[in-house]
Structures are given as structure tokens and as C-alpha cells.
Design a protein around this nucleic acid. Structure first.
Lengths: 203, 203
DNA sequence: TTATGGACCGAACGAATGGTCGGGTGACAT
DNA sequence: ATGTCACCCGACCATTCGTTCGGTCCATAA
């Protein structure tokens, strides 16, 4: 984003970071090595900078994690406040949220990836887990409502179904990379699979 | 397993580990804190033993990881060699593998959990990732065959579908704990959801 | 020209980490 | 009684960790 040769000045002044561009690098490394498996030296090397320089931008390693998961959670919770998630039959709201969640997940892929891998070792991580739980409960209530309105199959426990569909969506971060397949195709696939299943009958 | 007061001897000789029981403790801690986030002291504390004692049973931290993921992979690959995975229409083989994978995953829950979280920092981890990829390709070929035989819906790319269903199953380790819900119910839910979807029409 | 301030650096610190070493203790077989 | 062996211990080591500090460089503003 803000890294690279500045406007003027021959071959001088390469790499120059601000908080945002440094965060992008850090998150990328976190996702590759895992948060605990990443040292400040790893980050420094990836950024082409020294360890101590990182502390000019950020007060510590944990803050980088915090900023990243905040960015992810912000996107996720924004969906729950959108119209499509609040009006109409629960089954439609559910479909809307599923599709939108896929979109947000792809849009902020590295940040959401990191969020989904949080384990709970630090205060920041525990806070992130709590937030995820809150979001989870929102979707859970949608599934419950759709079941109550008779729009879901009755031979699968709604609680289990929610976990599974949720897990399916979250697993996207493990393999999807933007470019090859358009997001809309992915989102269609998710919604179709979640609601109508894999088996035949399709056009 | 083998920890506890020995047959004879008053209140003497508490905790006494063999490789297996120690591994069980270690894997449990790995899953809670993450492999990189777990120190040998953490393991020692959880086992009620000193760090140095651990080295009596195992040559190092990485070996514990190795033993654990081997246990998981062994169970997974055993499925691919079973009859149900090798005979009959691909769609039936697929259903068989899905159900059996759920069963193995639950049966060896802590080990498979650890396997699914491997990142690739050490040689052992990279080997584990390679093995997972091999298993993945096996399931992929099943989905492909089922598609060729016309038993899958044609409006979702088989490659994407396989990833999603695979991800759904793998996500089970994040929430399922044996006891509350029987494995058979879970497996039924997975197969139903994967093949027929969430939406109505069910009995 | 000088001063301000953002981005960066090398050297160093205390704490934690994975691992080693030499020794101890008790159950069991001889 | 003695020796063996599995299991355990405390003390220690070299390295790596996250973090701090004092200082340099240079683009821009006054």
C-alpha cells in the first residue's frame, strides 16, 4: 500500500511503512507461520526492516493481532446490521447472511483467517473468541427461527446444522484465493450446497 | 491410561507415565494452547512432572507432534482401504467415506484436531501437510467420479464442492465433544446435509 | 538555514525456551 | 542381598524471544 520508492529521489528511500501496510505484512506472516510461531524477527525479515523499527509503528506484537482481528470482526458484525439480515422470513435472512459472510470473508481474507485461528492464549485472543461467539449466536438464532417457521428439514438438529454450515463457510479461508474463482460463484456454491445439498436434481 | 497409583504400595508412587499416556496429556495441551504456544514446562505442569522427565519418554517436543499426527493419519488412510470406499457407484463410495471420516475423526478426536491445525513450520509439520494433501486427493477423485457418473448436481463445481464438504467435516473438531450427541447422529447429519442440504422437504 | 518529526537502525537487556546432565529412588527379578 | 531398570528429579546451558534505548537519516516546513 504505502511501501516502495517515494516519488522523488533516485534509488533512495526504499521501503517506507505506515501502520496499515506493516499490518498487512504482519498478518500475512501470522497466517503462514501461526501467531505464536512468528517471531518479531520473522516479521522484520518479511518487511525488510529491523525488529526495533517495528516498535516505531506499533507498541508490541499483540497489538498487531488486535488490529487484525478487529478489522475482521468489524466486517462480520456489519453484516448483522444490514437490512437483508433483519427483514423477511428467517430462511431468506439466513441465506442472505450466508452469502454476505462469504463475501466479507473473501474481502478481508487474511484478517478473517487470523481471527478464525485464534486460540485464547492472551487477553486479546480471549476477547476475539468472545466476539466470535456473539456472532455465532446471531446465526444460531436465525437457524432456530427458520426451523420454527417450518422452512428447514426436520431430520437434522438445527444446532448441529448451524455448526456444520458455519464450519463449511469458515473453512473457505483454508483454500480459497481470490482470482481464479469469482466470489459470486463461490457464494452461490456455498448457498446452494448449504440449502440444497450436493446430490443430483440440479440444472 | 497408565497413570495413577500402582497396584501395591500405600499412597506411594503416584503419576507414572508411559509414552502413550504422556502423549495423551501432551496432545490435549497442544490442542488447547496450540503447538507453538505450548512450552515443555506447560506440558510438564499438565502432566504433574518435571520438564526433564519428559525427555525420558520422548526425544523432544517435535516427536510428540509426530506421534500424534501419525495416529490421526493412520485412522484416516485406513478408511480409504476399506471395501465401502472401493466398490460400488462413486456416489455411494463418497457417502461411505464421508460417514467413516466423521467416525474416525470423533474416535481419534484430539489427534485429528492436532493434525488439522498443523501449519508447516517444522519438517514434521510439512510431512503431515503432504499426507493430508494425499488424502484430500483421494476424496477429490471420488467426487469427480460421482460427477462423471451424473450423480451430482451440475450447477456447482465439483472441486469447490469437495473443498466445502471437506471443510464442513473438518470443522467438527472445533466444537464436537463426545457424549452429548451420539456419533451416528452426527454422521447422519453430515451426510444428509452434504448430499441433500438444509432446506425443507425432509421427513 | 535551521528545526521538526517520521521512519529507520544496531546494540543490548531480562525473561523464557527447548534441551542436557548426573544423580536418586523404589519395584522387581535373581 | 544385590543389581537392574523404568521413572523421576534439580540445576544448568545456549539460544531465542519480545522489548528498550540512544542515535541516524532525510523530506518537509518555517
Amino acid at each position: 500500500m504505502a511501501a516502495g520508492t517515494s516519488a522523488r529521489g533516485r534509488a533512495a528511500r526504499p521501503r517506507q511503512y505506515d501502520l496499515d501496510s506493516l499490518l498487512a505484512v504482519a498478518v500475512s506472516v501470522f497466517n503462514e507461520r501461526g501467531y505464536d510461531g512468528t517471531s518479531m524477527e520473522d516479521l522484520a525479515a518479511a518487511a525488510g526492516i529491523t525488529k526495533s523499527s517495528i516498535y516505531h509503528h506499533v507498541p508490541g506484537k499483540e497489538q498487531l493481532l488486535r488490529l487484525a482481528v478487529e478489522r475482521a470482526l468489524e466486517g462480520l458484525f456489519a453484516v448483522t446490521r444490514e437490512d437483508g439480515a433483519k427483514t423477511g422470513p428467517a430462511i431468506d435472512r439466513l441465506e442472505y447472511v450466508l452469502r454476505r459472510e462469504v463475501e466479507v470473508l473473501v474481502e478481508r481474507l487474511p484478517y478473517v483467517t487470523l481471527l478464525l485461528r485464534v486460540r485464547g492464549n492472551t487477553e486479546t485472543e480471549r476477547w476475539a473468541l468472545q466476539q466470535r461467539k456473539t456472532f455465532d449466536r446471531f446465526v444460531q438464532s436465525l437457524v432456530k427461527k427458520a426451523a420454527d417457521e417450518g422452512d428447514l428439514r426436520r431430520d437434522v438438529d438445527p444446532a448441529i446444522a448451524e455448526r456444520l454450515v458455519f464450519g463449511m463457510i469458515n473453512s473457505i479461508v483454508e483454500w480459497y484465493r481470490p482470482g481464479r474463482v469469482p466470489v459470486s460463484t463461490l457464494a452461490d456454491g456455498v448457498v446452494t450446497l448449504a440449502l440444497s445439498g450436493l446430490r443430483g436434481k440440479g440444472s
